[in-house]
């Protein structure tokens, strides 16, 4: 499906954007250590700045996770139910993801509007900037979960894609 290809490209673009966020964050913290220890003139903005960057790339990455299916879950019920139940359980899960993502858009949007005119101390940016990623992530998650629901309904093997091996928790 061409729409699916577009969503794939969107997801990849978002993932690369998040990756740039991680690299820039590495630079900011290194700069903080350098300025404090070597120059003895700590920049005040680095702590808040790196946290802000992290929330952005986490929420962007989390949206990619919905499409790449790397969010961790436990299929306890699948051990006892017949395999034919799997697509139904997955569909319920995707609906839940869609619902919560919709909440992220709605309530995240409210947070953005409420805190548009207050400022983050030291950074000086509107507080809304910390809440903005929730909204963007929510929109992406809505799209990606809807895509999964439709593809599954059309008989595509969306549930058989293996989880990415580069995920290493613990």
């Amino acid at each position: 499906m061409p729409i699916s290809r577009v969503l794939g490209q969107l997801s990849n673009a978002v993932l690369y954007l998040a990756g740039i966020g991680l690299v820039v964050m590495t630079g900011i913290v290194a700069y903080q250590v350098f300025m404090r220890f070597v120059i003895n003139a700590s920049p005040a903005w680095t702590e808040a700045g790196s946290i802000m960057l992290m929330t952005w790339f986490i929420f962007l990455g989390a949206a990619v996770g919905v499409r790449e299916n790397f969010h961790m879950g436990f299929d306890v019920l699948l051990y006892v139910l017949p395999p034919s139940a799997k697509p139904w359980l997955r569909a319920i899960s995707d609906l839940c993801v869609f619902g919560f993502a919709f909440g992220m858009v709605f309530f995240g949007g409210e947070l953005v509007i409420r805190y548009w005119s207050t400022r983050i101390p030291v950074l000086g940016l509107p507080t809304a900037f910390t809440y903005f990623p929730i909204v963007i992530s929510g929109v992406l998650m809505c799209l990606f979960s809807l895509e999964r629901l439709l593809m599954r309904a059309a008989g595509e093997p969306v549930d058989d894609v293996p989880t990415d091996p580069t995920i290493t928790e613990a």
Binding site: Q32, R36, N40, A41, S42, A44, T46, E47, A48, P121, V122, G124
Partner: peptide
């Protein structure tokens, strides 16, 4: 002068330490 002092994330606190010649340092 040159002392690294942790202050809250507040513009006034940061500016105050700077005005006294200290190094306001962010830290949780």
């Amino acid at each position: 002068a040159g002392m690294k002092l942790r202050v809250m994330q507040s513009d006034i606190f940061v500016d105050m330490v700077a005005a006294l010649g200290g190094n306001a340092t962010p830290m949780p």
